[in-house]
Design a protein around this nucleic acid. Structure first.
Lengths: 143, 143
DNA sequence: GACATATAGATGCATTTGCATCTACTATCT
DNA sequence: AGATAGTAGATGCAAATGCATCTATATGTC
């Protein structure tokens, strides 16, 4: 129960402004390109890495920090868009296994063509590699 | 038009996860305490700093990265909650001047009692002051 | 096996967001 | 002055979100 120092607050403020600003810019660029919102990318990428094994909804939820009901409905939208498929998980029939489709992979790649360069555009404003990894290390400590 | 390096991507991912996680934690704590959502704090704080001069909606929008219509409606909610007042800006009768009320100040203070310690809790996980300010400097460069 | 408890995910409903206007006023140009 | 374009903020409407609850299955206890 102690209040933050000026520098602690400054980091928190910078963290918010930076994230918010870049996130909005990327999301807008995706929209302009006629592609799905940025949050879809996280799911597609996670599923791509999971390959044929797929992933469970609750895993995505934890790893990508989704709220359960939001993820549930996002997956419904992705399924109706044909980007993702779901199957009953036979070892536990409450659960579903989620897998990316061919179309989902293709869309992810298209998204990356917009997303990747923008990540680079912003992150390369920290040109010194050490500064970059130090910043990452600091943020990682926090969580 | 160039793709990001691994380290650039790592920073972007860390930035997102850290922000999202802490933000959610703080917002949840405020809700538990029966206080308004975190985003209200930004507005209240900005108005508190503006003192009696108040602030224009479009200034808040730019500084706090709000979307225009969202801020407009947030201010409506804050007005009906009595935390904030608005007046016609006489030099330009399209505009409004927004000012914090006594009650708004009081609520901001209450929020800070929850918010402040949580900022400290998380940010103090980067104990070295240099690392902290370096991280802030890096993030600031990005924007 | 019967019963309580826990977990995976879906869903109803109220609130919030995003987008596209729309209104009111201001500034500029001729 | 009159017409034109620009800016501040509001608003209607569709979509997304958060919350609480619900259903179905699993697990653990007796």
């Amino acid at each position: 129960m102690m209040y933050p120092t000026r520098d602690e607050t400054a980091l928190w403020v910078a963290l918010n402004l930076t994230q918010r600003k870049i996130y909005a810019a990327i999301d807008a660029a995706l929209k302009t390109a006629g592609l799905p919102p940025l949050r879809w990318y996280d799911v597609l990428w996670e599923l791509e890495r999971a390959k044929d094994c797929g992933a469970r909804a609750f895993e995505l939820e934890a790893k990508l920090l989704f709220q359960q009901s939001n993820l549930s409905r996002l997956l419904q939208r992705m399924i109706s868009g044909g980007l993702v498929e779901e199957f009953v998980f036979e070892n536990d029939r409450r659960g579903k296994v989620i897998r990316i489709t061919e179309k989902g992979s293709a869309v992810r790649k298209e998204m990356w063509e917009v997303y990747g360069p923008l990540i680079h555009k912003y992150m390369s404003k920290v040109p010194d590699p050490h500064e970059l990894t130090n910043a990452t290390a600091a943020l990682t400590k926090i969580v």
